[in-house]
Amino acid sequence: MHEFLAQLVNGISLGGIYALIALGYTMVYGIIGLINFAHGDVYTLGSFFALTILTALGVSGELHGVALVVDVAIALIGAALLCGIVGVLIERLAYRRLRNAPRLAPLITAIGISFILENVMQIWKGPAPVSFPAVVPNPSVMVAGVAIGAQQFLLVGLAVVMMVALQLFIHNTRLGRAMRATAEDRDAAQLMGININRTIMLTFLIGSALAGVAGFVSGVYYQSTWFFNGFGAGLKAFTAAVLGGIGNIAGAMLGGFLIGIIESFATWKFGGQWSNVTVFAILILVLVFRPSGLLGEAVFERA
């Protein structure tokens, strides 16, 4: 029972990261029908940006007091902002021209962008994993006999706050409504006076910024990062988005947490080498019996 709870806490933490990444996949798919395979690498880029910012601030270990809040905020917001800009540039340079091309063209381009980002990051920080400073102290509290660290609270708390904020934005603001309109019918949206280029740009900005947040928290949580991290994490976050119902924001969150928990339990019960097999086997089962995912493919829809 104790181990069960411990694994559940682990899974939820991991799931928070997947959920944040999955939001970007699902938003971009919802608005332009593209599986943005470069998105996982934007997540890795987020951890690289955060690491670079922390290094520039002279941070190499645990922070306390004001420095903790200020430096973490700078690194977090900086990484999110820079990732957002990268996402916008990718859309502008690689995808916009292909918006009306057959679907395969932007898909192949996305894979190409993914390779480019991975290679750039490999040149930037080398082919080996690099260590990430454990900036956030990690005192733990005991809950039902399980130690939960401050970092886990931070990670899950941040993920949940981001998701709630995103839902509120999409459903209650003028720009959010414009995004939903563009997702449902691009021509009709333009006839409302919506500049769809700007709306699509905003979608990439938000999705990529969330990946940047995920990159920062995963760096803190694992105290390491690697140029190739985004490949596996991206694939699982994409799986999470499909599991929840691609295009569905609430589905991406649910899928992210489920995948994290499943992976955690699979590693515990069957060993690490079986975790991917279990995750993807469950994905296949869900797709066979519920092809549109758990919450359905309703694009940009509240569950």
Binding site: R180, A181, E184, A188
Partner: peptide, 9 residues
Amino acid sequence: EGRRIFTRM
């Protein structure tokens, strides 16, 4: 043509 209302809203 075809109304093109936003059916999900």
